[in-house]
Amino acid sequence: MGQQKAAAADTHSQPKVGALIRALRKKQHLTLQQLGDAAQLSVGYLSQLERDHATPSLGTLAQIARALEVGVDYFIAAPNPTQAHTRAGERPRFSVDGSSIVYERLGAEFPGNTLSSFLMTVPPGYRSETVSHEGEEIIYVLEGELTQWLAGEEMVMRTGDSLHFRGNLPHAWANHTDNPTRLLWTGTLAMLRSTARPNRNGSKDNQSGAKPAATKTNVKPKSKEKQS
């Protein structure tokens, strides 16, 4: 409990994500339109993020980070494990500022690695944006229930269910229940690899093996509920 409170305090002590995005964008003399084009996000959505009127998912934040040529850990207090062995109850927990999703990092960084992996706790009522990206993902429901949309199809995943899919298919998910849902997420979408510094034309400056981040699409999940 004390560790969780300390992690929460560290998160709240960080500058707001929106302010960091705006400051870095202006430092690089980029307009909202230019950043939106580079990150493949709408100007309206970026404007909401910069004013802290919207909370990005980790994938969306990775898009913005790549467009600004920084690691996503520039915006969040991300753990940086030095060993591949992690123990239950001892892994650092973190979240994107303002988001109620809690992440626990499982994957380690080493030359040539392509996988990212997290334990995720998704609170009741949370719903993601719809995204698509290169690579692939595997989702395994450890506890609770998750509604997943994939290429326009809706499916309800319960404890023990899994899903493996190509990231270029438009996808989104939500927790419509009254209880938290715990997931094991693994994929080739680079999240916290700060060593990757791609240019805005999409080429990489190193051999980290990082994949391009998620891109938003105009495909919406088949649901009448509003996205949170």
Rank of each mutant, 00 (worst) to 15 (best):
E50F: 00
W149F: 13
D161A: 02
T188I: 00
G18R: 05
S162M: 06
L119V: 04
L146M: 06
R93Y: 05
V102S: 13
E225D: 09
L24I: 01
P92C: 08
D52M: 08
K16V: 03
P221K: 07
G98T: 00
G125P: 05
T130Q: 10
L146R: 00
G152E: 09
L106A: 07
L46W: 00
H85W: 09
R158L: 13
N80V: 01
P92F: 04
L163P: 02
S203Q: 13
L41V: 06
L184I: 00
T86A: 15
G44Q: 12
K226Y: 14
R91V: 03
T60F: 08
F110W: 05
T31Y: 08
D161P: 00
A62S: 12
T159N: 11
Y74F: 09
D73E: 14
L46Q: 02
L183R: 10
K220S: 13
G98D: 08
T86Y: 07
K5E: 13
N175P: 02
S95W: 08
L163Q: 13
G89Y: 06
K216D: 14
S162A: 09
R105K: 12
I101H: 01
W173E: 15
V43E: 15
L41M: 10
P15W: 10
L184Y: 01
A38F: 02
E109C: 04
H12I: 13
T82C: 15
S117T: 01
L20S: 13
Q34D: 08
H53L: 15
K216H: 12
E134D: 11
L183H: 01
Q83A: 11
G98P: 03
T82R: 13
D10C: 10
R87F: 10
